[in-house]
Design a protein around this nucleic acid. Structure first.
Lengths: 213, 213
DNA sequence: CCCTTTTTTTAGATTAGTCTAAAAATTTGT
DNA sequence: ACAAATTTTTAGACTAATCTAAAAAAAGGG
């Protein structure tokens, strides 16, 4: 890789833009949104966008927001790959709980060594999903697109396999711990209360009640 | 820890001073030596020493060099602990060779999470030595002081257990790979050539020739 | 002991990343 | 469609970490 050296800070901006693009489905990303996501000021973002544009990581048009180039997307996917692999390591090998790993992975994702990531991936058994059920991009940036449905859109009283969370908030993850809901569990929908969007469900044959986030 | 936040760069200066103190046995460390070790300029070091002195990490007297305070020493030992634990991880778990791990550990040592290090230490089986035979400080900064002798000071034709290297250069470590000398091996000294400081030795009962570094 | 060499510090500048305040451009509401 | 509100950019300044060149202090050698 002849990549012109990307700083820790730049990597965080790239990741933020990528995540915002995921949400807003490829529209140009606004200065304010990036600033809000990174707890920084819009003026700072403008400066950074100029720098990233010079490095051909984003396309930037004054007053019209930015968009990652394919080079930028590749960098973002690589950071996400590292983040998620480290999360698997922390949970599966070091016995962290799934709600504890985000901040540490946020640091580890910036460690720079292709060899390290290849070996870590092998050590972990080339996992395809992280502890929250998010797909891990492979070294070319490709990731499995899980065909899952959000619980909130469920209308049929049938069984589902719990394969991931959309909400990563610590308190929500801890709540799932208390109801003993774990990735891979079978959820059987027993009844749906459309008034308050709550569900009566059975997790692995134990009765429970579950509220969507 | 209420530690007033130490930057990546500051950590590197602290580690450099610690290592220089180890070599020169507690004399004050000169600006030039630090500069040379970190491939930086003496003027830059002076600036940094003023900052570290303000943070009570070193004692600094103009023109007379610096010395780590106990606070500074504690920080240094913590970084070294992290560095060496990560090296164990890289070699024992990810199958890196001992000459490949330094640069990666140099990055990983700055990851900030007490919980992570505690769990990593446990995962690795609380090792007391890193892959080069250097002692790993415990969480209070205490480390085993191995009672070993350098090969160059050996005068008796007896057996020794190979427990570490003083020279960490990649080429030297690779040389030891080629003669199949591994930590824990038994070295039997068969003859000593005092003229060129070479030894004829037997490693685990295979004949070899070994030159001290 | 003083004059030269070496080491260290000061002074002044630069770059990355950040901020606030003010100006400029875009968007929105009637 | 145009005035008001919002968003974005520019301008100017700050901090951490670095540099070079020059000044100051310490060390060394007759």
């Amino acid at each position: 890789m002849e990549t012109s050296q990307i700083s820790y800070t730049e990597e965080n901006y790239i990741k933020a833009i990528f995540k915002l693009q995921e949400i807003t489905k490829s529209k140009a990303i606004s200065t304010n949104d990036i600033a809000e996501r990174l707890f920084t000021q819009p003026a700072t973002v403008t400066d950074m966008m100029k720098r990233l544009a010079e490095k051909k990581i984003v396309t930037y048009k004054k007053y019209y927001g930015v968009h990652l180039t394919s080079k930028g997307e590749k960098i973002a996917l690589d950071i996400i790959r590292k983040h998620r692999l480290w999360e698997v390591f922390l949970v599966n090998k070091l016995n962290f709980k799934w709600e504890e790993v985000h901040d540490i992975a946020e640091q580890l994702e910036h460690i720079n060594s292709d060899d390290l990531i290849t070996k870590l991936d092998d050590f972990l058994g080339n996992p395809k999903f992280d502890p929250h059920g998010d797909a891990i991009p492979d070294k070319h940036g490709k990731m499995k697109h899980a065909d899952s449905v959000p619980l909130s859109s469920v209308t049929k009283k049938q069984s589902y396999i719990f394969c991931g969370v959309a909400n990563h908030e610590t308190r929500f993850l801890q709540y799932l711990n208390t109801v003993k809901l774990t990735l891979g569990n079978t959820i059987h929908i027993e009844s749906i209360n459309s008034f308050d969007s709550s569900y009566k469900v059975r997790i692995n044959n134990k009765h429970s009640e579950f509220f969507s986030a």
